[in-house]
Amino acid sequence: MAVAHGIASGIGGIRAAGDLVARMQVSRGMRIKEAKEYVAGCLRISVEDIADPVVMSELREDLDIGRVNAVPGAAKGIDAKFRIAELLDIKINCVNKFRERTGL
């Protein structure tokens, strides 16, 4: 059922910028309008582009912040989250813990 909601109303996860908008809600408690505007500003795109998989797949590839398509060598998981934390200027708990564990 969550999949149906995602298709009807969701942003599209890492096909688009759904995870990035979600990060601003969970990290900074931003309402949806503010979160979208913040992400659009960081990505230098329009708010309308946030859910566009064509715009976002190219941008995600350029920024190397994780895509659905399994391109060998491209960042996914914790690698991508390091870049996302920097891009959005937020702290992500698992990224911080990774830094602590590895001494980075």
């Binding site: 059922m1 969550a2 999949v3 149906a4 909601h5 995602g6 298709i7 009807a8 109303s9 969701g10 942003i11 599209g12 759904g18 908008v21 979600a22 809600q25 949806i32 979160a35 708010v47 309308e48 946030i50 859910a51």
Partner: peptide, 21 residues
């Protein structure tokens, strides 16, 4: 049969353990 929000009105979908499906 299926309806959806217009472009630009999308929102974040969180879930309650939906991978359990």
């Amino acid at each position: 049969r299926i309806v959806s929000v217009p472009s630009g009105k999308e929102v974040v979908v969180t879930d309650d353990g939906c991978a359990k499906i």
